[in-house]
Amino acid sequence: MQIEITHQPGNSAARVSLQAGETITAEGGAMIAMSGHMQVETTTHKRDKGSIMGALKRLVTGESLFLNHFTSNGGPGEVIFGTALTGDMMEFQMGSGPALMVQAGSYVASAPSVDMDMSWQGFGKALFSGESMFWIKLTGTGPVIINSFGAIYPIQVNGEYIVDTGHIVAFEESLNFEITKAGKSWMSSFLGGEGMVCKFIGQGTVWCQSHNAGSFGTALGPSLKSH
């Protein structure tokens, strides 16, 4: 499997070249184009592990309910993935390092050798944040494709670092996090419009997206017709 990310950062797309018989799993709706002989199988969870609970979990996490598995049967082939919002994409190689926690909505695709778990997050923490702070836990080895609204920048956390909840793309599970206030006081955090933020604690990398889809919606929303 070869992954090439093109048209960065504004209009990123991921071109995945598959050998005969190879498979890539992707978020439903991410496929832009593919070879004619590509076989597509749709499941509600990782292949061979489909279950009603898995589907429900995906429903809850705000991801579309389905995963598509593209298999290049009968010869090599390719699939091209894109996303709805303008922004960058990143290929991440899972290996011997810690698990990768990906914000729901930032996940694009992964190799079948990468395991996906939607059940990691405690609901109390997630709901309280008011944003789609749901996570997909990726483990195993192989490539993962992740997208962002805007540019992606990594932060090497060593101690504590704060990221606004709408700006988190992914982080290494070696980091702990807590949902907390941005300012010295709750009053200050809400008056200042920052609200809840995520404080990462420990050592590891967090990938941030430069822009916040919610803020863009707030800017654009008033100009759109109501229905």
Partner: peptide, 17 residues
């Protein structure tokens, strides 16, 4: 900075509205 402009910051910076 204007409201909601912060995307990330060192945890020991003080932020006051």
């Amino acid at each position: 900075a204007e409201s909601d402009a912060m995307s990330s910051m060192a945890a020991d910076l003080d932020m006051v509205a």
